[in-house]
């Protein structure tokens, strides 16, 4: 999969992003005092992306369960300019059949973290491809700060830009 890129969003993409963060010295310097977990929530995930994600996770297709995916979220444990782990959340408006299991770093349900940043799938795509600026997006509330201090985020705007730039070091595949 790495040769053609990791599907965004997915647990594999989250792990690759975490690894790329740890290789980014500029981010490490800009975020040396950052000490909070951050969840990036993608809403309005297109059906074909949700289907692909379900396939990656070994889940039934949402449409076969009669539901739509509410959101997908990547949670990163960010400490002092490093990424110390990632989790992937998929929020389905139903319980999974009892015979279905998910990988350890995948959770079913809503994410919680010190900071929760929410945007549409297509807007995160614009961030990852460099078409959108993360600080402008925060100020214009295209990225919504659902939890955590907006003012703290703005103080770390330089780190936010470098974090966004790091996504371009992640081999990414968009399947929409």
């Amino acid at each position: 999969m790495a040769s053609e890129g990791f599907v965004y969003p997915s647990p594999q993409w989250a792990e690759a992003f975490c690894k790329a963060i740890n290789e980014n010295q500029e981010y490490r310097e800009a975020a040396k005092d950052w000490k909070w977990d951050v969840a990036f929530v993608a809403t309005e995930i297109p059906d074909n992306v949700a289907d692909k994600l379900s396939e990656i996770l070994g889940l039934p297709k949402p449409r076969d369960l009669g539901v739509k995916v509410n959101s997908g979220a990547i949670k990163l444990v960010l400490r002092n300019g490093t990424c110390q782990g990632s989790e992937f959340y998929i929020d389905l408006p139903t319980n999974l059949p009892p015979n279905v299991s998910v990988p350890a770093n995948v959770k079913i349900g809503k994410v919680d973290a010190d900071f929760i940043l929410e945007a549409t799938y297509s807007f995160w795509k614009d961030i990852i491809t460099g078409k959108a600026d993360p600080v402008a997006a925060l100020l214009s509330r295209k990225i919504k700060v659902k939890k955590g201090s907006f003012l703290t985020l703005i103080q770390y705007s330089s780190a936010a830009v470098k974090l966004a730039n790091t996504t371009r070091n992640v081999p990414t595949k968009f399947v929409d």
Binding site: I116, R141, K144, V145, K146, K147, G148, S149, F150
Partner: peptide, 13 residues
């Protein structure tokens, strides 16, 4: 409860 999150739930803008 976290007032920031709760207020943003009620008033997203």
């Amino acid at each position: 409860e976290d007032p920031i999150s709760r207020i943003r739930e009620i008033l997203p803008d």
